[in-house]
Amino acid sequence: MDRAKAIADKITSKHPGTKLEWVKPRRLKVSAPASMIKDVALFARDSLGFDHISTVSGVDWIAKNALEVVYFVGSTVPGQEGFVLALSERVPRDNPVVSTLIGVWRGAEYHERETHEMFGLNFQGHPDQSHLFLPEDWNDLPPLRKDYVSPGR
């Protein structure tokens, strides 16, 4: 817990716009404004050793009219492997444009592509945002949005 807190403090003191959401043993979540996220990501990768992308998730906060995208990043630095940084940003639901972080973590490519099709988030700078899992002819709402209702329900 202390160590995760120390890592979080490094981020928040270096980038004052970021906010520490929570810390747990070996986990920390930091949210950043969309304009800063790339700098924070680069800082986390180069100075803090979070170099191993684990997955990218999204959350549809429909009541707050926001879409959240969360990057879960692990580390391969010896002694720090168990730690996972969750780096998140929120964008308005009606204009969900974020910038891609492929330049920081190359492995994020397919995860971002998936988040794009599932939430309708637009990753600017992403080389290929065609459908990865959904059928080619999908023309409904992105399925993981809260206002999309599965046809069986």
């Binding site: 684990s54 997955t55 998730s57 999204g58 959350v59 549809d60 879960f72 397919y110 998936e114």
Partner: peptide, 27 residues
């Protein structure tokens, strides 16, 4: 294998993300 679970206090998960290793190795 990882899970991102968001709960809002209701009986069902608000968000359930399964981070599967195959998808991680696909790149």
């Amino acid at each position: 294998m990882s899970y991102h679970i968001v709960s809002d206090g209701s009986p069902r998960p608000y968000r359930l993300k399964i981070g599967v290793p195959s998808a991680k190795n696909l790149r």
